[in-house]
């Protein structure tokens, strides 16, 4: 079945081989043989990936390659799909996040997520940011909460733009502002890791530039994993890059090396624009 699915691309040499040229020291996230199944269909095959802390790691690859699927394993969003099944091991700071004793809600508070399409709640800007801290009990009292919201919006570079209309609906902001609001919302639960699933694909270049700038700033305090279709973006913002192809993590290394000197033929073909 696995072989059959490969016929779509004749240039694949041997899908099982993975090229990893950099060993990450003291990784934030480690994955061992992570596979994901949607019903009978396997979407991800034995991914081994160590993600460094306080850095941006890009996951690139053509559509349907499994990069988003892998990303959604890190905060167990795949749990919400009834037919999805994850095998293997993912650890954050040596804690197995698929441990049955681990509370998934707690995990998602520590691993924030920003989605492809900006999806603020249809509530006020303040409420959007305050919701996470409130349900997790992160703020004591009203002033504490207001301070947390302000800090989060400041870190997301949105404070100056919205401080006068903090109680207006978040859905009234522009696309780029909405996405930064979502980032502020993710930051507000005080996570260690922020996952971003194609965060700029719905934004114009100016808004994209702002979000990218923000990512580079946030990197100092958070571990960021970003899925992107834009190789230019991956080069601009990330320190590490992993290339995924039809369910396999093909090549992983420093961004510079991946883009300038890819080892695997499939990576070369993708990066030099021969397919994808």
């Amino acid at each position: 079945m696995v072989k059959g699915s490969l016929t779509m691309d004749q240039q694949v040499v041997s899908p099982e081989t993975t090229t990893t040229r950099s060993v990450v020291e003291d990784p934030k996230i480690t994955s061992g043989d992570v596979s994901v199944f949607y019903g009978a269909k396997q979407a991800l095959f034995d991914v081994n990936l160590d993600i460094p802390r306080y850095a941006v790691t890009s996951l690139i690859g053509p559509s349907g390659c499994g990069k988003s699927t892998y990303l959604r394993c890190i905060n167990r969003m795949n749990d919400t799909i009834p037919i999805a099944r994850v095998t293997g091991e993912i650890k954050i700071d040596d804690q197995d996040i698929y441990d049955p004793d681990l509370d998934v809600v707690e995990l998602r508070a520590r691993v924030g997520m920003v989605f492809q399409k900006p999806n603020p709640f249809p509530k006020s800007i303040f409420e959007n940011v305050a919701y996470g801290p409130r349900i997790h009990g992160l703020a004591k009292g009203k002033t504490d909460l207001e301070e947390l919201v302000t800090t989060s919006l400041e870190r997301a570079g949105l404070w100056d733009e919205v401080k006068d209309r903090i109680n207006e609906p978040g859905t009234g902001l522009s696309g780029g502002q909405q996405q930064r609001l979502c980032i502020a919302r993710a930051i507000a639960t005080k996570p260690d890791i922020i996952l971003m699933d194609e965060p700029c694909s719905a934004l114009d270049p100016i808004a994209t530039a702002k979000v990218e700038e923000l990512m580079m700033e946030l990197r100092e305090k958070y571990t960021i994993v970003i899925v992107t279709h834009s190789m230019a973006q991956a080069q601009r913002v990330s320190q590490k890059t992993a290339f995924f192809h039809i369910g396999y993590m093909v090549e992983y290394g420093d961004t510079k090396q991946i883009f300038e000197d890819p080892q695997d033929k499939r990576t070369q073909d993708y990066i030099f624009g021969r397919f994808g």
């Binding site: 998602r108 508070a109 924030g112 997520m113 999806n119 996470g132 349900i135």
Partner: peptide
């Protein structure tokens, strides 16, 4: 829209929340 559910799950809301 499912994006709202995802957003809420993403900030760590439980299913009933």
């Amino acid at each position: 829209p499912p994006s709202i559910r995802e957003a809420a799950l993403g900030v760590g809301a439980s299913k009933h929340q």
